[in-house]
Amino acid sequence: MKENISRLMDGEVEDAEFERCVAELRSGEAMDTWTCYHVIGDSLRGAHSIAVHGVATRFSARFHAALAAEPTVLAPPRERIRTSQPATFAWAVAATIAAVTVVGWTAFSMVDVPPNAIAKAREAATIRAAQAKPQADVASEYLLAHQEFSPAMAIQSGAPYFRAATVTAIEPQRRP
């Protein structure tokens, strides 16, 4: 998770992964990590930091609340512009070194939303990937009979028929 956050801050996250990383930020712990990394970065660059104890915590809490209310519109520009300036920062490295030295105390004092309640709840709702077979042998007969009923499918042009086209199980029927 922490690695993802540092990659997110560096703009190294692909579009497909972006949603997941942002969703991760919804947990209190991840949000604190995010704030922490920014604080570390600010400190190392000598910028005036928001990491006065307590202020950072409140900032984190406010930011967390604001983020939770957003429909994930925390979108960075899709294309990352590489410049020759040393603008991008090696967050992961910085975090490793700095977290235990310069601003280590700040990081720990900010972790005010400890438990993994959200993660636990998600785990419970998720079946382990190993249990599910990776790709479609969803039987086409059931799919074809089912698909007309879904409102979410009905708003997609060409759907639900493209599903039928992508399901590999459509084979010549055995004649009864």
Binding site: I127, Q131, A132, K133, P134, Q135, A136, D137, V138, A139, Y142, L143, A145, H146, F149, S150, P151, A152, M153, R163, T166, V167
Partner: peptide, 26 residues
């Protein structure tokens, strides 16, 4: 928003496998 279908039919041995399959959101 979405639909879930339940099918019940007499069990025969020639039918496709028992268990979980997933294709995208389905």
């Amino acid at each position: 928003l979405v639909a879930i279908s339940v099918f019940v039919e007499p069990y025969t041995v020639t039918q496709t496998q028992i268990g979980l399959t997933q294709a995208g959101g389905l």
